[in-house]
């Protein structure tokens, strides 16, 4: 099958490692060869956390510069920073809700305008799908479900051969009961944003 290289980029605590793991599980359940890479440790303390999912005829677990087929950004500044992973055909799916780093608060640099950022990204890549994922997570009553929103949008974008049903099955197995309904709702609403 065709190789798909996906990069997830987020701020520590936003749940991208869970999202990439669940995607890997769903792909495996469909017998799609998959490898996921993660970074643990120091970077997770409020820093940038990157993970990658590669599917198809590929064994390398990481994505080089310019080689992402899909970039899933959980925070607009970090999506912008990760553009080095993208080429002119890359599909970028990004949350638009800013999470300013503390360096901005102590006067070391300015947070770029989200509108301008989206405009810049949109002009450079193959396709840009953007929405306020935090608003959806709030709407379903589970602020931690942003990762489900982003997974939903990824599946909805039709860029990878993983189906919504398989993805939801994995979410159902891996989620605590109290959060299942809101997670699935977040997933569906994310999907609708990308359709």
């Amino acid at each position: 099958m065709e190789t798909k290289r996906l990069v997830f980029i987020a701020v520590g605590g936003q749940g991208n490692l869970l999202a990439s793991r669940l995607l890997g599980e769903a792909a495996l359940s469909m017998n799609i060869p998959t490898v996921v890479s993660e970074i643990h440790g120091m970077a997770q303390r409020g820093g940038i956390v990157e993970s990658a999912v590669l599917m198809g005829d590929v064994t390398s677990p990481i994505v080089s510069g310019a080689e992402a087929d899909v970039l899933i950004g959980f925070e607009p500044l970090e999506t912008l920073r990760a553009l080095g992973k993208c080429n002119g055909d890359t599909v970028v799916i990004t949350n638009t809700h800013p999470l300013p780093p503390f360096t901005v608060a102590i006067g070391q640099g300015a947070y770029p305008s989200p509108e301008k950022s989206l405009e810049l990204i949109g002009a450079k890549v193959g396709k840009l799908i953007s929405f306020d994922g935090n608003a959806i997570a709030e709407e379903v009553g589970n602020p931690l479900s942003l990762n489900m929103v982003m997974l939903g949008a990824l599946i909805g974008s039709g860029t990878i051969p993983v189906g919504a049903e398989e993805m939801k099955k994995v979410i159902a197995i891996s989620t605590k009961k109290a959060f299942l309904e809101s997670n699935l709702k977040a997933f569906d609403m994310g999907m609708a944003k990308a359709n």
């Binding site: 820093g47 002119g88 070391q108 770029p112």
Partner: peptide, 21 residues
Amino acid sequence: PSVVVNTSDLPALPGRPPNLC
């Protein structure tokens, strides 16, 4: 090789080093 998008016109981005919780 794949060609990376042009990033020369991006604004200066504030750093996001890890931080104590």
